[in-house]
Amino acid sequence: MNKAEQIRELARLHKDQLPLNFQFMEIIELEAERKKLTYTGKSLLSARHPFHIQVKKPCKALIRIL
């Protein structure tokens, strides 16, 4: 039994303890979620801030040569 099936089984067994919305739960694999992200995964460290800098193209063409 995989992990998702285990969770479903537990939710079924403890139906009377869990809120009703557990009977409608959906389970997805996070890895599959992460694979949908690509560009956003590219984040850089700033020397000045503790923040991650998200790499992104500017909102307009900075040069128009072609």
Partner: peptide
């Protein structure tokens, strides 16, 4: 909420 490599989604459901 997340558990290990899984995300458990508890949808708002119309009964």
């Amino acid at each position: 909420f997340n558990s290990d490599q899984l995300r458990i989604i508890l949808p708002v459901v119309k009964l």
